[in-house]
């Protein structure tokens, strides 16, 4: 049985000699990303919590983007989606992405509306 792995990450910027080495490389990268998240979460730099992008703090956007980066490398290298046929990979990846984006959009918009109802309504909730 032939097992060819694609041994490049970061679009070919980093090439590994064999699969085992690539696994450790990806681990190092994921650990680094987690460490950055934790450090940012503890110190909470003023410049990142103060600025708001699209209704959310910049820091939270950074967390979400870093999470997606981690998810990408777990799925692509640990679950070796990188080595699967592109049609298979797309069926797996795009279906949830589409549905989740849709659901999040609907629910968060609705929640924001309810927040305003509570806030501007004539009923006291804090007593």
């Amino acid at each position: 049985m032939a097992h060819e792995h694609k041994l490049e990450i970061f679009r070919g910027l980093l090439k590994f000699k064999n699969n085992t080495q690539k696994i450790w490389g990806v681990l190092a990268f994921l650990t680094l990303v987690t460490a950055v998240e934790v450090v940012l979460g503890i110190i909470k730099p003023e410049s990142l919590t103060g600025t708001s992008v699209l209704g959310m703090r910049l820091l939270n956007w950074i967390f979400i983007i870093l999470t997606l980066v981690k998810a990408y490398y777990i799925a692509w290298d640990f679950m070796h989606l990188r080595d699967e046929k592109s049609s298979f990979r797309r069926a797996i990846v795009w279906t949830p992405i589409f549905l989740v984006l849709y659901l999040t959009f609907i629910l968060l918009t609705e929640a924001d509306y309810i927040y305003n109802v509570y806030k501007d309504g004539f009923v006291t909730w804090n007593f």
Binding site: I92, L99, L107, L108, A111, Y115
Partner: peptide, 27 residues
């Protein structure tokens, strides 16, 4: 893989519900 996709949607549902409640009581 298809089971994992459906399970991912289940978890997304939970996390989205969490987001819903959180945005509702964001303050």
């Amino acid at each position: 893989w298809f089971f994992l996709v459906s399970d991912a949607l289940t978890f997304s549902g939970f996390l989205a519900a969490y987001g819903f409640s959180r945005f509702k009581f964001i303050e």
